[in-house]
Each structure stands twice: as structure tokens, then as C-alpha cells.
Design a protein around this nucleic acid. Sequence first.
DNA 1: ACACAATGCAAATTATATATTGCATTCGTT
DNA 2: AACGAATGCAATATATAATTTGCATTGTGT
Lengths: 64, 64
Amino acid sequence: MKNTKMKAARVQKGLNQIKLASKVGVTRQTIGLIESGEYNPTLKLCIAICKALDKTLNDLFWED
Amino acid sequence: MKNTKMKAARVQKGLNQIKLASKVGVTRQTIGLIESGEYNPTLKLCIAICKALDKTLNDLFWED
DNA sequence: ACACAATGCAAATTATATATTGCATTCGTT
DNA sequence: AACGAATGCAATATATAATTTGCATTGTGT
């Protein structure tokens, strides 16, 4: 259940977890837990992450 | 902030809020609040709703 | 080897999504 | 008008997302 697409998009943007977290208004831990698949984030947060990474919901959070 | 796309997709599938709620494993109120835009649902729930309505995240929850 | 940046991990707390119950309102049908 | 089905709305309770803090681990560069 790891979200490898989100991590890849973040790295590709040259952001570490701390920078992405602050762009998005959450803590580093929240980003880490989402990437490691142990969290079930909020829609608002997903959208904020997508916009910070120039991706869409389907790009980062949709399977199949 | 009303989610008219979700409501339209539900109606088009011939489902009322109660039926969608039970397909998805939540209560009627939760569905109603999401459609009326007063809720910030969980990613898992968004995905369950999408699958129940044969739509994707971008179809129902992505703007612009 | 050392230092430092980035990430992982874990416990306790806070904020908020969802459940539950009940009643009001709207809308279609007869 | 009256009935029932579908939806709206509101208060309280519960589950869980997210915070906070701190320390451990991993990786990269010198």
C-alpha cells in the first residue's frame, strides 16, 4: 500500500518531506505516513499535495 | 462548494443516498454532507464512492 | 570515521471525520 | 389534502487523522 507515485513526484520536484509538508500546511510526519501507506488522508490534503506537485488526484491517488 | 458532480453521478446510477451509503459502508448523513460540500471526506471513502459510481477521483473530486 | 541532512518510528495529545438518533422539510403520487 | 419516500439539519458520541516531541536509523559528502 505504499504510495510510490507520490514519493516519486515529490522527489522529481526536488522537495524533501519537510518542504512539501510546509508547502501543504501539515507536518513532516503526516507526509511520511501518507507516503508509507499507513495513513488515510483527507480529500483536502490530497488536493493540496497534488497542487504542490503539479499532479492530479488520479495521478497520485488512483489505482487501476 | 457543493459537490454537484457526485450527486449527478449517483442519481444517474439510480441510487438514493441510503443505497449509496450502504454500498460504500457509511451512513446516509455522511453521503448527504459530502454532497452538500460540508465535509472533507477521507481518501478511502472518496475512492469507495468513485468505484460505487463507476467514476474516478478526477471525475468527482477534482476541480479545474 | 565523522558530521549532517533526511527519513523512520513511537507514545501521548488534539482536531476533526463519521456514527447515531431523532425530527423537520421537501417532493412525488394518489 | 394526505401519505410515504428521500433528503436536510442539529446535538452528542466515537473513531481516527493529524500534531507534537523526541530519539533512532539511514544515507551522502568530506
